[in-house]
């Protein structure tokens, strides 16, 4: 699978309170949540995002709350994937469970600038900066996560387990 779009760059420790503030957590409706995605860190986020665009960030992306509403909001806003130096662990799990592709790459996170055109080859874990021509490698997805994806996510895995 390939993703392509423009990058929108943020710093370290982007927490779930800025990804989707708790004041909007009185619903889990994806399109409602998407309207407020990243609102407290970048009020123009929703306006500037075009389908396929990516979030690029530093260390510890998605820190804080366990709210699954964070990856739901990002995905529903049209973002194709998130590239960061590292992810907070609950957000990491939640992204897989919600089907939001995420990639760890310090080189990419250091190098990519706002509005750079990026292409990601998800299967090969290769990130290409079409604006500068640079290529970065993402940390491979752990084997088990790949098995989970193959089983159809946690839902498919639960079905398999319950039918054993």
């Amino acid at each position: 699978m390939k993703f392509s779009g423009r990058a929108w760059v943020y710093g370290d420790n982007v927490d779930t309170d800025v990804i989707i503030p708790a004041r909007y957590l009185n619903t889990s409706d994806a399109s409602e949540l998407a309207k407020h995605c990243m609102e407290d860190i970048d009020e123009n986020f929703v306006k500037k995002i075009k389908k396929g665009d990516m979030i690029v960030a530093g260390y510890n992306f998605g820190s804080g709350s366990s709210r699954e509403h964070a990856p739901i909001a990002i995905k529903a806003s049209g973002v194709s994937c998130v590239i960061a130096k590292s992810f907070a662990r609950i957000f990491y799990r939640n992204s897989f469970n919600m089907g939001l592709p995420i990639f760890e790459s310090s080189d990419a996170a250091d190098d990519i600038k706002d509005a750079d055109e990026i292409e990601v080859d998800a299967d090969r874990g290769v990130i290409k900066n079409l604006t500068t021509g640079k290529i970065y490698k993402a940390t491979p997805i752990p084997e088990f996560m790949q098995e989970l994806i193959n089983a159809g996510g946690l839902f498919g895995y639960a079905k398999e387990l319950l039918n054993k």
Binding site: S66, E68, I90, R93, N94, M98, F144, L154, A158, L162
Partner: peptide, 20 residues
């Protein structure tokens, strides 16, 4: 440990959870 809703839904249904 804290998890997302889907992971906890998985635990509600199966009584299990995966851990690294």
């Amino acid at each position: 440990t804290g998890m997302g809703s889907t992971d906890v839904g998985f635990a509600f249904a199966t009584g299990k959870s995966w851990f690294r």
